[in-house]
Design a protein around this nucleic acid. Structure first.
Lengths: 190, 190
DNA sequence: TGCTAAACGGAGCGCTACACTCCGTTTATG
DNA sequence: CATAAACGGAGTGTAGCGCTCCGTTTAGCA
């Protein structure tokens, strides 16, 4: 594979991720090619169709997020820090694109990644069973849904950088609220 | 105006809000009519075009949310409870549709509503200056962005009811993290 | 420095899906 | 029962989008 071809392939992946996070939806083939500074023909020489490209981007993000999660588990001892680092890593890698491209939760795709992702998440939860630094009712679903919520772009015309800044700040508050020591009280109906 | 016409108009508004929250985007005219159990012709007799209908739905949601906010301010004394009730009211009224229909924050539309909304928000913040039940760096922007974040549908194939259930739970954790008494610590780079 | 296979660009084609119209039919209301 | 008001939905025009095709450019090698 020629060097320029490899570089262009990467440009297509990056441009796609950017556009998805900026516009909060699936970009058109033309938009991706333009953002990458390439012709449409080049896009279709690297990927058989638009969906393949989108899938590749989503997979790439997922892979890096899971790899980070595995590393975090191996090096971080306290459950609260591990959860915090994992969720920040997901946002930094642009986990939002996975949700925008595969809005349904039926990830029958990626059976391999799914197993690894489940391992990471259950480890995070089980670790909290011992040190109990976070609320004890914290579940895998809580982490998944929160990761989706904070990873999704707000789609109000912000740049990906501004958007991420807001997301990180909000995520930290959410994690504060997850601490077992938080003066939480059961809220009844308003 | 004939009674059935008025009822059908309301059905169109309700169906639109439902679809926006379910699919996380602007529904087609056909989809709206079908969901409302009406013909497309009826839609266009009540609204000159699709955008007018969408605008009307967004305005309706905003109006009810702001009215609730004004009532909450008049009856709730503590700042943390007032903020909590306001944000839950926004979610319950489906504030997410406003963001899906007007993704950009330049609400040059609704100058009237904007003034009232600003009054509600600044009052909430100013009240916290006195009782300091929430973090003192809490800003109007924090409330706005959080309302958008938690009001937006997750768009992963959940029903609006399930979606709202998750949003409410997550919002309560976020609000817990906003309490001044939370054992928050400054997070440094990972 | 030339040669060639590999890679690129983008005009244009075909098609889908969507907004909106139009008119014959139905229905509320006095 | 009369009639104006309201409805239904097939159909039309179109805009935008995915993808192809082929003439042009370029990387890499001897």
């Amino acid at each position: 594979m020629r060097a320029d071809a490899r570089q262009n392939r990467q440009r297509l992946l990056d441009a796609t991720a950017e556009l998805v996070l900026e516009a909060g939806g699936e970009p058109t083939s033309d938009a991706i090619a333009e953002r990458a500074g390439l012709g449409i023909g080049t896009l279709y020489r690297h990927f058989p169709d638009r969906q393949s490209l989108l899938h590749a981007v989503a997979r790439h993000v997922l892979e890096r997020t899971i790899a980070d999660g595995e590393a975090i588990i191996a090096t971080t001892t306290t459950s609260d820090e591990a959860v915090r680092r994992y969720m920040h890593a997901a946002i930094d890698h642009g986990i939002g694109v996975v949700n925008m491209i595969h809005p349904l939760l039926d990830d029958a795709d990626w059976p391999d990644l799914r197993a690894r992702a489940e391992a990471v998440l259950t480890t995070l939860i089980e670790r909290n069973r011992y040190d109990r630094l976070l609320r004890e009712d914290l579940s895998v679903g809580d982490i998944v849904f929160a990761t989706i919520r904070f990873g999704r772009p707000l789609a109000i015309g912000l740049s990906p950088a501004e958007d991420r800044e807001i997301a990180r700040r909000q995520l930290d508050r959410y994690l504060d609220g997850l601490l077992a020591a938080t003066p939480y009280r059961e809220h009844t109906a308003p």
